[in-house]
Design a protein around this nucleic acid. Sequence first.
DNA 1: CATGCAAGCAAA
DNA 2: TTTGCTTG
Length: 741
Amino acid sequence: MNDSGAKRVVALVDMDCFYCQVEVQHNPSLTGKPVAVVQYNSWRGGGIIAVNYEARAKGVNRHMRGDDAVKACPDLNLVRVKELHGKADLSKYRTASQKVFEVLSEFSSCVQRASIDEAYVDLTNVVNHHISTKNNVITENDLPNTFVEGYSDDNSKEDKSVHLKSWLHDVYNNELQDDCFLRLTIGAMMVERLRKSIFEQTGFRCSAGIANNKILSKLACGLHKPNQQTLLPPSSVPHLFETIPIKKIKNLGGKLGERIRKEFNCEFMSDLAAIPLNDLQQKFNDKTCNFLHQISKGIDNEPVESRLIPKSIGSCKSFPTGLKVKEEIKQWLNTLMNDIVDKLKDDYEANKRRATLMTVSVRYLDKKTKLATSQCFEVTTYNHNKLLDTSFSSLCTMTENQKSLHWKNPISFLGVAIGRFVEINAKSSIDNYFNKGAAKEVKDINIQLTRQENSKTCSNSNSESDNSILIEQQLNSKTSAPLSNQSLPSLNYSDNKNNKTCVSDVQNLKSMFAKIKSSNHSFNNSSSTLQNVNSKKEIKKQYKLDMNSFFTKKLEIISPVKNQVNVKLKTVDQSSSASSVLFESSDEISSSKNVLNDNHERTSQPADSFFSRKLEIVSPTKHHNIDDSRIESVPTVQSSITEDTIQCAPKTLLCERCDKMIDIDIYDEHIDHHVAIELNNSLNVTNPVQPLNNRLLKSKPTLKKKNERGLKRKQNSKVSSSNPKKPCTSISSYFKPLLNP
DNA sequence: CATGCAAGCAAA
DNA sequence: TTTGCTTG
């Protein structure tokens, strides 16, 4: 579809100073008063993230600090955003926003979330349907809050009425316009209803723009605010563009817009429209030229995607003064991860999907390395500790000064984002999800041992059987058929009725791992990732080979079928199975709690330590209250090689598990010994994530998908939900025992 | 010390 | 895959 034929009807709905509205709704005594929302008010009154119109009238703007705003407007009501995990908690606004989007969805099946308070709505189909089935006579009474750009230049009411009449006259009498005007007008009428409906159902007011495409609707929306809407007919665009600065157009508000302004010495969109295509081509690539040329004429073919939920979920924090101390960095990463896991839980419940990619970003204070660097990883679990573990290792790799207690370059920014979601529906449980992934991967091993705690069924059991155990082991060879639950030789020890695991089965597993323990293969845990990069790679490589051969052998013991093994103890009902396997959280959290509660020395002792004090401020919530003892319980963040050992005794390494100095020549075996014992004790082993760029095996699906993506972009067609699902290709590069000290 | 945080997209 | 840009 393009703009020359049947034109679309696109609306952009923008909530007016949304955070303020939400706050006023929560505290109605603020109604009609100047309100601003701030986050973190400790430094100069905090940063303002929203200002209502009453406060704007008194000179408050978003770039002020809280203190300045109060100076400008002494009766300003500053609302501070609740904090969670030491970060501003915007979940209140997210929830409110979802309600708004639900209302939008009643009007069109094609609604695109553009931000927390903005959405595009493609009304083309609804309008067309209206035209073919309903009365098409629109009067000014149908458009009480509508301005038509080019017709209503003034805000006075009489004038507005006059100009609406003038517009409607054109709608029905200007034959040159085919039905484009009519369709936009019907669209505007629908948006009037839509906005009314939003107000009635949520209590929030919004503004809107109605035009033939996204960029114009967005531009139009800003022309009359708040609580109003603007129709921008294409015929009014050339005149309007004479007064619209280039930087006001979406995508031209930054460097590109500035470059255009300088290169061509032009200020307004009409100037841009006057530049010959040839001249543009001297300066910009084809794609940019095309975009600029089109948009200068008001043409924009970007489709409205049908998507109401975010494609990625992240958490980040800046540190203007810089973080230098390793423990502190670890703490903040922990905090971010808590934040993310919470969001992921909500997302999982709401959207029945799970993320498969995590990106860790860091920026340094020092200006030379101003740019953020990032690494991404395959994600196979939402378990906090495991994600934290991997992200911290990644951070260490990126900084390459992991050996010291103090980072060489203070960190000014930390961020973690999770995305590349895949759907989980009832038929495709997590089990299948893992199976599919394994099926695609050659010679891949995926082992997941998860201790689960089911409070309902376990309340009257002893602690041993409280921990139901779910084990999945998958081993594929090149020739193996795709795995499915049905085809797998599986040992199912579960008792559906009681949902209870026999102790004897646990014993069986223990003995199984006792066998593993007795192997003389080298078990490098991921502390190896904290060694220097080269040796890390070597070790991983070596280890991977070992593991492959090892399991090929050992699995024969477990199952008569070589290639496919699925051992499962305990049946959990599908839904709870999915989420608990994903998060593995209840057990993790409770075990962390136990660490804290059972060790009073530890909990009371660090009261004077910097970190525990900090955490009291940062994370009042109990299950997020992680002091340094919690950090110590995180398995692989810990380096086997401390700064001291490196500097003082390069030929020995400190084994942090027993605090002994171990000769480097026998270090692997020593660790092996610990690992085996811990395996046997904990029965808690996973391989949550692995740096993609370190993967030894490149999976074909990855490459294929890349190409498909490129194609999709070129075709400018729908994405996201229709994307081929990339199965989770879980690769064990290393074996991570989870320590429960 | 000082907008901060969140998210999407596309070039490199 | 990583980085940069853009927006709200």
